[in-house]
């Protein structure tokens, strides 16, 4: 249950698991059933991915009655971000990210 960085990177190194995190980012507090509905994966596959995400502390769960609700826990991702992006770089990195987003949107508009 103790999260470490290797677990975080391994958990993130899979498109299906990143999709599950995207889904929980958009809406927290989903049950296993709700997570399965949105994905083209079997219940067993989703369960397996969730076990890895929980072990990496990227997903945390809360019990509400008989239901288990899943939440994205962004704390380990923030630790990775803070480790390599220094305080003075943050604004520049953000500026480049904004530029990339703006150019992408521009592309979509022209297409």
């Amino acid at each position: 249950m103790v999260a470490d960085e290797d677990k975080v990177f391994k958990a993130l190194a899979d498109a299906s698991r990143r999709q599950l995190l995207d889904r929980l980012y958009a809406k927290g507090g989903l049950t296993l059933g709700e997570l399965c509905e949105a994905h083209d994966m079997s219940r067993q596959a989703v369960t397996k991915h969730l076990v890895l995400l929980e072990a990496a502390n990227l997903v945390v769960t809360v019990k509400r009655g008989r239901e288990k609700l899943h939440y994205l826990n962004a704390v380990p991702i923030n630790e990775i971000y803070m480790r390599w992006i220094g305080k003075f770089e943050r604004q520049r990195v953000q500026a480049l990210f904004n530029l990339k987003q703006a150019l992408k949107e521009n592309d979509h508009e022209q297409a």
């Binding site: 507090g29 945390v60 509400r64 939440y71 826990n73």
Partner: peptide, 12 residues
């Protein structure tokens, strides 16, 4: 639950 809660965990 009117709106989903935010839940965060860290091990220290």
């Amino acid at each position: 639950m009117s709106k989903p809660d935010l839940v965060y965990t860290t091990y220290i």
